[in-house]
Design a protein around this nucleic acid. Structure first.
Length: 439
DNA sequence: TCTGGGGTCCTAAAGCAA
DNA sequence: TCTGTTGCTTTAGGACCC
């Protein structure tokens, strides 16, 4: 999907169409998740600090992500893909590999082009958004093709032309070559794919190590036989928070770690999983990051056990100077819950339900105290008199709403209310395409 | 005013067992 | 029993991806 989050917001909000839209973290330490193509003109791109984006594009619309909304669209698109083949490997909400040959949907260039073109039309009809298609003989090349196809296009790499296409391109297009490996290669005088080939496999392995070196050399030769894998088991579950200002108070650090442990376990249980290894992550004031982990004798999904392990791990970490991020994760997952003796003992000492019942109430109370939690910028609302709209901003006891729906062709009217206006309530996003037209 | 959140995979060191 | 080798597990860190 092209500039997925930003495009979805533009489709949902007519007043943003044709405008620079930036979706991402809005706080002082946020980063850009997606910038609309209009915003990219100003030099804004994903992973850029939002503060920097504001300097480059001060008049853009800044929105926090609405993942539930994007997920609903994503599921519609993934459904279209699964109609082409059972072998669909999602990479994220907006990207997936599809093995068209395994699905019997395509077997040569012509049938592939046809399937791709049809798919693009279906995506547009069902979601009102544009998607790009890359067609090629391997995952790596399909991915490169789809990047070349953006926005709103289709690119097919013809068999036999792969090496010539790849040769002059930067090493950075190869999967697994990020900033660090790119620098490493550049210091060895290697900046293009053909220079990797020219250096020879032994030299690349010497530079980058065995696994990485052999893999990368194969990619440079356009050799990639990785299969499309439909179902991949989750290997870990984690949650983390970056704080708007560094936390210096050790007691507060402990409290945050306990909260994160509980959130992590909630996610773990929702997925029907349990795990053996508890990981604590700490990013200090200077951005140095460290992790500490502890492996239990058996898998657990007990909040008390995870909280206690996380607390133990924290005691071995020096947080003087302040902490900018804390995280708690669980790995070594099992899809069953084997209660170990410690978990049971902890449960008996600490009456069951107390911690899980108390935590959400505290959270809700705090969000309410912070004020206007339900009037988050960009989120949908409904007003008894004016109908459906979305929050443009809120603060100081006021909330500003633009009343418009995805099928409006003109920007809607803006009105401001008190945050406690009895006629105003949070609402679900409206479908981008009227129900009757959906596939 | 630097640098999110959710993951995956790889490497290397250290401890331990065969 | 001593020593060296090998291999597995745990831990920590780093790179990369969207």
């Amino acid at each position: 999907m092209d500039a997925f989050y930003a495009s979805a917001e533009q489709a949902s909000k007519p007043s943003l169409r044709g405008k620079a839209v930036i979706v991402g973290g809005i706080g002082p330490r946020g980063v850009v998740a997606t910038a609309s193509y209009e915003a990219r003109v100003f030099g804004v791109h994903s992973a850029m600090p939002t503060a920097q984006a504001r300097r480059l594009a001060p008049n853009a619309a800044y929105l926090t992500p609405r993942f539930a909304f994007y997920r609903a669209i994503s599921e519609q698109v993934m459904g279209l893909l699964r109609a082409l083949s059972p072998l669909v490997e999602p990479l994220s909400l907006d990207e997936a590999f599809v093995d068209l040959e395994a699905g019997g949907t395509a077997w040569d260039e012509e049938s592939a082009r046809l399937a791709g073109a049809r798919l693009r039309a279906e995506i547009r009809a069902v979601t009102a958004l544009t998607g790009s298609v890359g067609l090629a003989a391997s995952k790596m090349l399909a991915k490169i093709a789809s990047e070349q196809a953006k926005p709103d296009g289709l690119v097919l790499i013809e068999p036999g032309t792969e090496r010539a296409l790849l040769g002059p391109m930067s090493v950075r297009i190869l999967p697994g070559v990020g900033p660090a490996t790119g620098d490493h290669l550049r210091r060895a005088g290697i900046t293009t794919v053909e220079e990797i080939v020219g250096a020879g496999e032994d030299e690349v392995v010497r530079l980058l190590g065995k696994a990485h070196g052999h893999g990368l050399y194969a990619m440079a030769l356009a050799r990639d036989d990785r299969a499309v894998v439909a179902e991949r088991d989750t290997k870990s579950v984690s949650v983390e928070d970056t704080y708007d200002v560094d936390i210096h108070d050790r007691v507060r650090v402990r409290v945050e770690v306990q909260r994160l442990a509980e959130r992590c376990v909630r996610r773990l249980r929702e997925a029907g999983l349990s795990g053996r290894t508890i990981v604590l992550k700490v990013r200090r004031y200077d951005f140095s990051t460290l992790t500490r982990s502890e492996t239990l004798r058996g898998p657990t999904d007990d909040p008390a056990v995870v909280r206690e392990a996380a607390a133990r791990l924290l005691e071995a970490v020096d947080t003087t100077g302040g902490v900018r991020l804390l995280g708690v994760g669980v790995s070594g997952l099992a899809d069953y819950t084997q209660e170990d003796l410690f978990a049971q003992a902890a449960g008996e000492l600490d009456p069951a339900g107390e911690e899980t019942a108390a935590a959400p109430e505290v959270a809700v109370a705090e969000e309410s105290a912070a004020g206007e939690w339900q009037w988050r910028a960009g989120h949908d609302v409904r007003h008894a008199e004016y109908g459906h709209g979305w929050v443009q901003g809120s603060g100081l006891g006021r909330v500003t709403v633009r009343f418009e729906t995805p099928d409006d062709s003109e920007p809607g009217r803006v009105r401001t209310f008190r945050t406690d206006d009895p006629g105003l309530e949070p609402a679900e996003p409206l479908p981008l395409v009227p129900d009757g037209v959906r596939g």
